[in-house]
Amino acid sequence: MPNLSTAVVPSPARPAAARPGLSFTIGQDVSGCWVALESHGIAGGLFRNRDDAIHYAGVEIRNGAGEIRFATGPVAFTAGR
């Protein structure tokens, strides 16, 4: 799993047309917190509930060139290096 330096890492500031397709995995960590992680480790966060995680991923994908997947098991989220 990617090692993210903060709890929520914004995507790079680029126009939507120049942004590559982002792919998010949404699931719960071992303690039950909801997690959304971009597959390349460029964005992610911890959320109060599933809907908030889905909303975050949807905003990050805002140009529609991406996907949201749901984990079938625990999702590991680490902050800091």
Results as ranks from 00 to 15, higher is better:
residue 66 G to N: 05
residue 71 A to K: 02
residue 28 Q to I: 11
residue 71 A to E: 02
residue 49 N to H: 08
residue 70 F to Q: 07
residue 36 A to K: 07
residue 4 L to W: 01
residue 18 A to P: 11
residue 31 S to K: 09
residue 65 A to D: 09
residue 23 S to W: 07
residue 73 G to W: 01
residue 55 H to K: 14
residue 16 A to Y: 10
residue 42 I to W: 04
residue 20 P to K: 14
residue 29 D to G: 02
residue 34 W to T: 07
residue 65 A to K: 12
residue 69 R to G: 01
residue 71 A to R: 07
residue 38 E to F: 02
residue 8 V to G: 07
residue 20 P to A: 13
residue 63 N to A: 12
residue 77 F to Y: 10
residue 33 C to V: 14
residue 18 A to L: 15
residue 26 I to C: 04
residue 26 I to T: 01
residue 13 A to I: 15
residue 22 L to E: 01
residue 58 G to Q: 08
residue 1 M to R: 10
residue 31 S to Y: 08
residue 14 R to F: 11
residue 39 S to T: 09
residue 70 F to D: 07
residue 68 I to E: 02
residue 73 G to S: 06
residue 42 I to S: 04
residue 34 W to I: 07
residue 39 S to R: 12
residue 3 N to D: 09
residue 60 E to Q: 14
residue 44 G to C: 04
residue 55 H to F: 08
residue 62 R to H: 13
residue 71 A to L: 04
residue 66 G to D: 01
residue 60 E to G: 10
residue 55 H to W: 08
residue 66 G to I: 12
residue 69 R to H: 03
residue 62 R to M: 08
residue 50 R to P: 00
residue 81 R to Q: 08
residue 59 V to P: 00
residue 1 M to H: 07
residue 36 A to F: 08
residue 56 Y to A: 08
residue 29 D to R: 00
residue 36 A to W: 07
residue 52 D to G: 13
residue 1 M to D: 06
residue 15 P to V: 15
residue 65 A to Q: 11
residue 23 S to H: 13
residue 13 A to G: 11
residue 73 G to C: 04
residue 52 D to S: 15
residue 69 R to D: 05
residue 20 P to M: 12
residue 72 T to W: 00
residue 57 A to G: 02
residue 54 I to K: 08
residue 67 E to T: 13
residue 18 A to K: 15
residue 78 T to E: 04
residue 27 G to T: 10
residue 69 R to C: 05
residue 79 A to L: 09
residue 4 L to V: 08
residue 66 G to Q: 00
residue 7 A to C: 05
residue 9 V to C: 12
residue 81 R to C: 03
residue 36 A to S: 15
residue 31 S to T: 14
residue 40 H to A: 14
residue 11 S to R: 14
residue 6 T to S: 09
residue 45 G to F: 01
residue 54 I to R: 13
residue 3 N to T: 12
residue 10 P to R: 09
residue 54 I to F: 10
residue 9 V to W: 05
residue 33 C to A: 15
residue 21 G to V: 06
residue 45 G to M: 03
residue 33 C to K: 15
residue 23 S to F: 11
residue 38 E to A: 08
residue 56 Y to Q: 05
residue 2 P to R: 06
residue 58 G to I: 09
residue 26 I to S: 00
residue 1 M to L: 07
residue 35 V to A: 06
residue 49 N to E: 06
residue 22 L to D: 00
residue 39 S to F: 05
residue 43 A to W: 02
residue 15 P to Q: 14
residue 78 T to M: 02
residue 23 S to T: 14
residue 31 S to L: 07
residue 46 L to T: 14
residue 74 P to W: 04
residue 70 F to L: 10
residue 52 D to F: 12
residue 60 E to V: 13
residue 13 A to N: 14
residue 71 A to W: 02
residue 32 G to N: 06
residue 71 A to M: 03
residue 61 I to Q: 01
residue 79 A to S: 13
residue 41 G to K: 06
residue 66 G to M: 04
residue 37 L to V: 14
residue 35 V to D: 00
residue 56 Y to H: 12
